[in-house]
Simulated scan of single mutants.
Amino acid sequence: MQINQSKPTITRWRSAAITAYLAMGLLSGFAAASEAVPQALERFQLGSMPVTGVGLRDGIVVSRHIKYQTDTHAFADKSLIEDVMDSGTYGAFDSTATLRGHNEQDHFISFQDRLTFSGSWSLKLLDGFVSNPTHSGTGRIYMRAGADIGDIKVTNGGQVDQNIGVIVQDLHGGANNAAIVLGQSTGHTIYSSGVAPSFHRSTLLFGPGNGPVINADARMTQEVRDLSRAEREVAENLKPLIKAYRQNGGGKIHVGVLAQDVMEAFKSEGLDAMDYAIINQEGDGLGVRYDELLAFIQATDTSRDMDVFYLAIILGLLASLVVVSALSYRRARRNQAEISRMDSELLDIRKALESR
């Protein structure tokens, strides 16, 4: 029998072959599953490398043996999407798995990178995740995010103890270690559209001229006022609170204030430190924002300088009054002497007239 090898026919045969192959993988997985061999009931394995143990529970396993040519990927999405007629959403990988039941689970992760490098040559780059898209059209992308982390939705009264967007564990295995490297040359290196960000138990290194910028636009502020007398008293009392200390566990000597001391200084003047942006709750502990603290303390120095200025003016006026008073006194004394001389002369004239 001659087979018509037109493109549509070949495509149909290819689709049927792939479907049959997948079905055999699913059926083989289902047939081999048992309590003795606890693999997934539905699984597909591509490749000849043996998979044992908990690896048999994985739904899709790529276990190829690749030699010599390595410009390849275990998973490659090369789809072409055009003439979209629906809501317009697409994801190369979409995890909507659900974990339920009453037993404790150790972890539930949609993507996990556990690469191993065991060669003796050099590897230029080992990346867990790379986002490097291309825009080659003429349309508009409203926003591009290399990683978009949204808030967790609590819908049934459950509890989330720690809700953290990004965690970078202690990196110390390299000759040089950096938790985050920012190579931004324009725009913002770190931008917060909400409350100003705080930094807790961290070391920040900024290049020359690239320190943090705090928003101070008058158009974006309200209730602008001078510090009250109680606030100035607090600021003055904060200066002696600067101490030298070490964090728990040792390390280098730090110079600064302790958050609890700052809170007590506010309390002593009838103020609540948590109403100000100086003290922040950082996890289980308290943190101090030194940009706010130093500006607060500096305000007292400015006020004190103005007090000295006004005092100097008052003292100058008093000195002028003393000089004017002294001159008036001397003038009055001189006038008094002149009057006495004139009285004496009149008395002499009177005696001369009476003697005649």
Rank of each mutant, 00 (worst) to 15 (best):
I214D: 02
Y290A: 11
A32D: 01
S110N: 14
I60K: 02
R140Q: 14
R341M: 13
I81K: 14
Q169C: 05
S87N: 01
K153S: 05
A36I: 00
T19L: 12
T138F: 13
A32W: 03
M306L: 15
S122K: 15
T189P: 00
L115P: 04
V51S: 04
R43P: 05
Y191S: 12
G251Y: 02
I339G: 10
V51Y: 04
S87F: 00
F296I: 00
V213C: 03
G59W: 15
F129C: 02
P133M: 08
A196E: 10
K124T: 12
L258A: 07
S6V: 00
D261C: 08
I3R: 03
Q159C: 08
A32L: 06
T186F: 02
V37Y: 11
F75V: 12
G119T: 05
D217R: 12
E82F: 01
F30Y: 14
M274I: 12
L258F: 07
K78C: 13
A196L: 06
R64V: 01
Y329R: 07
N103I: 15
T19H: 04
E264D: 14
T52E: 09
R219L: 13
V168S: 08
E264W: 08
N215I: 01
A92V: 00
Y329M: 10
R229C: 05
K252E: 03
A259G: 06
E282K: 09
P50Y: 03
R219N: 13
D291V: 07
N177L: 11
K243F: 01
E231K: 05
Q5C: 07
G101D: 07
N210W: 09
V224D: 04
G183S: 02
G165C: 07
L41P: 08
T203G: 06
A31M: 14
L41T: 11
R114N: 10
S325C: 04
S202L: 05
N335C: 06
K67G: 02
H172E: 09
T186N: 03
G209C: 02
E236V: 09
V62Y: 09
M24K: 08
L353A: 10
G283R: 02
V160K: 08
E345I: 14
L241N: 09
E223S: 15
A196S: 10
G29E: 00
R330F: 11
H102L: 15
I278N: 13
M274W: 12
T134A: 15
A196N: 09
R144M: 08
V181K: 07
A147K: 06
I149C: 06
V84E: 05
A273G: 13
M1A: 14
I149V: 08
D151F: 04
S185V: 10
G25D: 00
M306T: 07
L353T: 08
A175F: 00
M85C: 00
K239P: 07
L346R: 13
E338W: 04
V160W: 05
R304I: 11
T98V: 12
G183E: 01
R225Y: 06
S228C: 12
T9A: 06
L27M: 09
I141D: 00
